[in-house]
Design a protein around this nucleic acid. Structure first.
Lengths: 198, 198
DNA sequence: CTCGTATGAATGAACG
DNA sequence: CGTTCATTCATACGAG
């Protein structure tokens, strides 16, 4: 009902993300961004502010919660002793390396915290280069982004975490940075965001 | 609306500090305590045990977290964006003794990373005798600290673990170490106010 | 209104 | 130490 987006209750007690904001965040998450750095959070929030009020901590919490809940929701199983399918073990399940699904499967985590040690947290390192141009871009979100279509090439499918972006060519594991996704820098696939003045 | 002190859930899986404990810890932090030594941690936890169960590692973690989050502080306000966080919900949020937060009267100017340096810690000059008597004192805080809100001149030396302050009247100029604060040895001034209004 | 669910917010506990 | 994980609390919203 508001001009900003389809939010209903304008209760200002806690951040209520708009659909556009959720879109962007979800896409970023699906693209592989899981733990944005401070600068990334800053830029993202600045960018999201074009769609409505948002603070940095909101972005931070969003990613934290999203990641935690994705994992927690998928990880309800103990061992795979009785269940033939242990495919739910794929906490991240996004940009791993090629077809290697052997991430955690071969190592049933006894303790959650222990399992994290073996986690493949390095596989999906977002190489983000702090470029000035991108910086300036983030600092000044264009107002036109509100009107243009965001992700025309992909329908954001929530709860579908299993997206493999990297595949194909040998060991050249293409990492996806959030700049790639948002700023459209050399998009690994058709996930290009043609907005944001690039 | 049931449990008064401390926590809501009686799930003792992890330490849930009581409001009194948090008050003490916060005051200590504001007084300048950032990295208590083992000895100090021991002492603090001993004192805190008067308000509920607590271990040394809890105190250790508390200071670690508090310090880290003081720096990180996802409270980067954007332009004139007010309402950073109005009320600090106390977990329990009960009306036990809903005192007015003697919190900071001056909001720190959100300087990106320098904010932590300007940690305007109010001096906590509550001195305790020693073991036994301290407990009674801690449990019965008299609330008269409000008056000595801020000192005109105050210095904080991180390296030497000391908080120096100078009274406006210039009667005393003394430095308070952690032990002075925690163990309360030789209070410089007569402001023996055991704050933690409750 | 109450309850259940989804999720924002917070923080204790650790890891690297 | 900075960063991340895990758990919990609080709140918004839809169903009944």
């Amino acid at each position: 009902m508001e001009a900003l987006s389809g939010r209903v209750g304008v209760k200002c007690g806690r951040w209520n993300p708009t659909v556009e904001q959720v879109k962007v965040l979800t896409e970023l998450f699906r693209a592989g961004l899981r733990t944005p750095s401070t600068e990334q959070i800053q830029r993202i929030s600045t960018h999201l502010s074009a769609f409505g009020k948002v603070e940095s901590k909101n972005v931070f919490y969003w990613f934290q919660n999203h990641k935690a809940r994705e994992r927690h929701h998928h990880k309800k199983r103990r061992r795979g002793d009785s269940s033939p399918d242990s495919g739910s073990n794929d906490d991240d399940g996004r940009a791993a390396t090629r077809e290697t699904d052997v991430d955690l499967v071969l190592q049933p985590p006894e303790s959650k915290r222990e399992a994290r040690s073996f986690n493949h947290h390095r596989l999906m390192t977002c190489y983000m280069r702090d470029a000035v141009e991108t910086d300036a871009m983030w600092e000044r979100p264009t107002r036109e982004v509100e009107t243009l279509e965001l992700f025309p090439l992909k329908s954001y499918d929530l709860e579908t975490d299993k997206v493999r972006y990297v595949r194909g060519g040998g060991e050249h594991c293409r990492e996806i940075s959030f700049f790639d996704v948002v700023a459209g820098r050399d998009p690994p696939l058709e996930l290009r965001l043609c907005s944001f003045g690039l």
